[in-house]
């Protein structure tokens, strides 16, 4: 973290909390190092006028750094105050504004950008690819090497929450030496796989019984409820049936008529080639039975889902 010169205006925009916190912390440290007073303003409980009060020059001189968090859910008064503050000269005050995305407060953002604010983007980290990139950046910043297998293992183990992922990276950097590969990750996070219902359903629909059951066990062990898993299984099979019955046509057009995303249509098309109509019928009926059992109709919800998965993979093989 470099203690760069304090910019008089900074905009931290994007929904990813971890990155926002880091960016804000960097500015705050820099401001403190420069001897400024740091004043935090919370957008949700904002009292009209207090921003102007904070920004007014102090009797004893000295500089100030005002940090405004959560502009995207701020009341109109705060936005008006910010705009009037930005309209005048800013002496001895630096302003850091965090915005989580969305249209609210757009005028403030535009004004900040026009005035040449330092902009830090904090895009959401959602897909596995984003997470892998994030992990690689983390290690690159700490000047450490990690193999691609290591990245994959780490994302698979603790990738559900970005904050947790960041903490795991920091721990590995602090506790180990040399290149980090999947064996090292395994030492720290071995045996833990954060599986979602989607991964379970993908494996089941692809006919991989063993893989699907393994992922299901992991999902249950990491606190996923059986109910959403069954719901995902049902929706995947439903998509297969819809796409299978729709026949030919471009996937974009099909996506529109079926109310699905084009990539979902393409994926379902690839998968449905291995299925027969009767097989799909048996599979969906098994899921409906499992849903009933999961919601109190049976004694053991996990067993109900397992049985449904086995029926699905068998129905695929039996065509």
């Amino acid at each position: 973290m470099t203690a760069a010169a304090v910019p008089s205006l900074a905009l931290v925009s994007g929904p990813e909390e971890v990155l926002v916190e880091r960016a804000v912390a960097r500015f705050v440290t820099a401001a403190k190092a420069a001897g400024a007073d740091v004043i935090r303003v919370d957008a949700t409980g904002y009292e009209p006028g207090s921003l102007i009060l904070h920004a007014s020059p102090s009797l004893f001189g000295g500089t100030k750094c005002i940090v405004v968090r959560g502009l995207h859910e701020s009341p109109d008064e705060l936005q008006l105050d910010l705009l009037s503050l930005l309209g005048g000269p800013l002496d001895d005050v630096s302003l850091v504004v965090a915005h989580g995305g969305g249209m609210k407060g757009k005028k403030v953002i535009d004004t900040l950008k026009k005035l040449g604010a330092d902009v830090v983007d904090c895009p959401a980290i959602k897909s596995d690819r984003d997470k892998s990139d994030f992990v690689m950046k983390e290690f690159a910043r700490a000047r450490r090497k990690i193999t691609s297998d290591g990245v994959r293992a780490l994302v698979e183990a603790v990738g559900k929450d970005v904050r947790e992922l960041a903490a795991a990276c920091a721990q590995l950097v602090a506790d180990t030496e040399g290149t980090i590969d999947d064996a090292v990750v395994d030492t720290y996070h071995g045996g833990k796989v954060e599986a979602s219902g989607f991964r379970v359903a993908d494996a089941a629909v692809a006919g991989q019984a063993g893989e699907a059951l393994r992922l299901l066990r992991h999902a249950i062990a990491t606190g996923v409820d059986p109910v959403p898993i069954v719901a995902v299984l049902a929706s995947q099979l439903r998509q297969l049936i819809k796409v299978g019955a729709a026949g030919r046509g471009s996937s974009a057009q099909l996506a529109k008529t079926l109310g699905m995303a084009p990539w979902q249509v393409d994926r379902a098309r690839r998968a449905v080639a291995h299925w027969s109509g009767d097989g799909l019928a048996v599979a969906l009926q098994a899921v409906a039975a499992a849903d009933f059992e999961v919601k109190g109709g049976g004694r053991d919800p996990v067993y109900a889902v397992e049985r449904a998965i086995l029926t699905i993979t068998r129905a695929r093989a039996g065509h």
Partner: peptide, 19 residues
């Protein structure tokens, strides 16, 4: 019965219609 037991109506109806 399934709908009464909180199974999503669409899923229960699909399983039925397939039969």
């Amino acid at each position: 019965d399934r709908i009464n037991a909180n199974v999503p109506p669409l899923l229960a109806l699909e399983a039925m219609a397939l039969q």
